[in-house]
Nucleic acid binder design. Structure first.
Lengths: 239, 239
DNA sequence: TCAAAAGTGTTAGTGCTACACCCATGA
DNA sequence: TCATGGGTGTAGCACTAACACTTTTGA
């Protein structure tokens, strides 16, 4: 048996949304050292008798006043590089969450300012993040991109009822491509249980009113939504 | 800031292989309490200055005498249920490894007997596993099944050089389906960089000699190998 | 009646399935 | 020359991509 080392375990959450036709990530400004004043993913230490996913939802609620309950949330992966935290050995279980376009979150009980930041600026390194949080965001975005293909995850970016264009915008923004509206419409309406028509229509400022949909029961999408060959994955992951 | 709880972190590895036309998993018999004498996944505590993946390879080498270096290995997910280990708070980072059909491993330095066990017996509950290791195996098998579709992972089950039938057997055994040999041949030979012909042939006891292949540089497979709609995933995961 | 957005129909192309057929070897 | 497994050709089907066309609204 090897030595049992006391390790601190945290959870960090990458919340993605679409705002202003951009993929954005929710960040908080750190109120304490290390990296005080730097932007970081919302997250924190897991409690004594707490499982990881509840911890992720709790931290999200505390730090960003985002309703952890209703959000799509899945475990991403765990980051355990020995020197990733200057305070000592801290292993973090990273989560991916998807939110619809919400009102700007305010700072949570920890009194840190929570705000949306375009993912592009994080990936480009224009906005610096604490710890290895940029790497975590890279993995999260990659996971989200993959899952749009073969799951119904895209609906998690939409409010409870949404139009076909809103759903299509999700694919276009997350993949950074443009999609033929006609073929897209056919594809998603013929997929079993992807969408459930509400029967309602939404009148836009101009143009024909769009039918409104709700997410259906399906969680996987077959055949998948193709986007051609996979772009390069971050550091050897194809998850 | 929340309370920092001292947590023990382990790695556990699900090594899958194909032996006797069955998907099998490598298990060790526990030499110490808790669960002494019960079968468990190879694994153990992560060291002070060690990252998780090296820890997984080290534990594998120590407990099963399997060469951790050459094996395909990827992080699966982390299990952090508060009561998963009777000794106290132990979070485990689970890994998935794929091995070709190797000579039966002997017990490693920890003097535990390491042996292959059909995955079916573990999933059915015929063979009991320590801790939540059965659940981990469920996730690992699900991941492996998914990845056969859209990556070249199947070659990791094969030795360095292999025949088309051996590769096809991988899909058949892991998915539990039968595959048309002719169409399979066409599919994998036309996929870019999936296989690299060695030019050699292997003479079987009977029948036409089969061409031998080595794995190519490709890691993803596009278009994917279809197996129809996804079967139900274990407990809410669609990873 | 025009602009804008929603939604339908049609055609060509690609990839898959199923299966007939040929090839190369040992017994 | 037969059994056995390796490998090719081809017809039909499912799905996709591209794009012309129709519908429905507000200005």
């Amino acid at each position: 048996m090897a030595t049992v080392t006391g390790v601190a375990v945290t959870v960090d959450v990458v919340v993605l949304t679409i705002r202003d036709d951009q993929l954005q990530v929710l960040l908080v400004e750190r109120g304490i050292e290390p990296f005080r004043g730097t932007l970081a993913l919302p997250g924190g230490f897991i409690r004594e008798h707490e499982d990881a996913e509840p911890a992720a939802r709790r931290e999200l609620a505390e730090e960003t006043a985002l309703d952890g309950g209703g959000l799509y949330l899945e475990q991403l992966r765990t980051f355990a590089a020995p020197e990733r935290d200057p305070r000592g050995r801290v292993v973090t279980i990273a989560y991916l969450a998807i939110a619809p376009d919400l009102p700007v979150p305010v700072g949570g009980s920890d009194a840190r300012a929570a705000r949306w930041q375009p993912v592009a600026s994080v990936l480009a390194g224009t906005v610096a993040l604490a710890f290895d949080h940029r790497e975590i965001v890279v993995h999260a975005v990659d996971r989200a991109r993959s899952k749009l293909e073969y799951t119904t995850l895209a609906t998690a970016f939409c409010p409870e009822v949404f139009t076909m264009s809103e759903l299509r915008r999700v694919y276009e923004v997350v993949w950074g491509v443009s999609i033929d509206a006609r073929n897209f419409h056919r594809k998603v309406t013929t997929a079993d249980d992807f969408l459930e028509p509400t029967g309602e229509r939404r009148v836009l400022s101009t143009g024909r009113p769009a039918a409104l949909y709700r997410r259906g029961a399906a969680r996987t999408l077959f055949p998948p939504m193709l986007r051609g060959a996979f772009p390069p994955a971050p550091s050897g992951t194809t998850t």
